[in-house]
């Protein structure tokens, strides 16, 4: 019983953390390129409805995954056209994208409400899942979970170990210098924004294909905003985002279990705990001011208008 409980708790934590991690990883790349897209929530909810719809209409969850990613990319490109091509205010545009996403997804999803969804089933690596405690956590989860970990490793490697990553960071730190060097600031930012949209869409598809296999309006319920906050509190470092997402997921699930066990702590405090704990821990590990400034993309949120 104890063993089974721990296995299940770990699996629930992974499910709760994965969408946050994926959405945050996308936004990290976007922000590293100097663009602040506050529309994560909107792109995510569009990903959720497209993911559900794609899977339900085709019967194949992978079509859903692709549909979710495509939905997120399309939404992000709309943001890109506005902020990059015609240099609108990024904060206002991002907020409108969230509003648009919530409204549009409600409209698109009206006929999906109450329908049974298609679940993206877990992979089963046979005997490996029999390993005590961590077997099913490591070897018996849904494919998006593995994708999310791979994503962290790839983003980290790309940003800090490749030339293209250096270019992306350069664009985020000083778009004028990058432009003077002959780099195409707008094209690079388009690519970053689209990547962010793909990640948000995938995170949304995870919600409607794995987390709860159904479509309900507003099903992201603020997760996009948490992903945004994670990026900032993790000072734009991929592995810290991973730590933050799992800390948030872990404390969320932990406090629900604490309540079910009858722990005598006010439930409002327990509900606030994931936010408190995540912020405190991430602020503590990011307390080196000089490093934090170094990690903050200097051009974050500033529109780029080349003067010639």
């Amino acid at each position: 019983m104890e063993h089974e409980l721990i296995v299940n708790v770990l699996l629930t934590i992974a499910t709760a953390s994965t969408p946050l991690l994926i959405a945050a990883m996308g936004e990290l790349v976007v922000e590293r390129s100097g663009v602040l897209n506050l529309g994560v929530e909107g792109m995510m909810v569009i990903g959720a409805v497209c993911g559900f719809g794609g899977a339900a209409l085709s019967g194949n969850p992978w079509v859903g995954v692709l549909a979710g990613i495509s939905g997120g990319v399309l939404a992000s490109l709309l943001f890109g056209v506005l902020t990059l091509s015609i240099a609108t205010n990024q904060v206002a545009t991002g907020l409108s994208l969230t509003l648009l996403g919530l409204g549009l997804s409600g409209l698109l999803g009206e006929s999906f409400v109450g329908q049974a969804g298609v679940k993206l089933s877990a992979v089963d690596m046979g005997p490996l899942t029999e390993i005590p405690y961590v077997g099913r956590f490591l070897f018996g989860q849904d494919p998006i979970f593995y994708l999310s970990l791979l994503l962290v490793a790839c983003v980290s490697w790309f940003l800090f170990r490749t030339r293209a990553g250096l270019v992306l960071r350069a664009v985020g730190d000083s778009h004028d210098s990058a432009h003077a060097l002959g780099l195409s600031v707008v094209k690079i930012r388009y690519a970053a924004v689209a990547f962010g949209g793909a990640c948000a869409g995938l995170a949304g598809a995870h919600l409607s294909l794995v987390y709860t296999t159904q479509w309900v309006e507003n099903m992201t319920a603020g997760r996009g905003w948490i992903a945004l906050a994670l990026v900032v509190f993790a000072s734009w470092r991929p592995w810290r985002v991973l730590a933050g997402a799992y800390l948030f997921g872990g404390v969320t699930i932990g406090q629900l279990h604490a309540q079910a066990f009858g722990v005598a702590v006010p439930s409002q405090l327990l509900s606030a705990l994931p936010y408190l704990a995540t912020i405190v821990v991430l602020v503590l590990i990011s307390r080196n001011k000089r490093l934090t400034i170094l990690n903050t993309p200097a051009c974050l949120g500033r529109p780029f208008v080349p003067n010639r």
Binding site: V216, T252, S267
Partner: peptide
């Protein structure tokens, strides 16, 4: 009894149900 402090969050309600 588990309090989720929301009327409507399918994911969180599902988490509470799993717990």
């Amino acid at each position: 009894v588990v309090w989720v402090n929301t009327w409507f969050d399918a994911g969180k309600e599902a988490d509470a149900a799993k717990a």
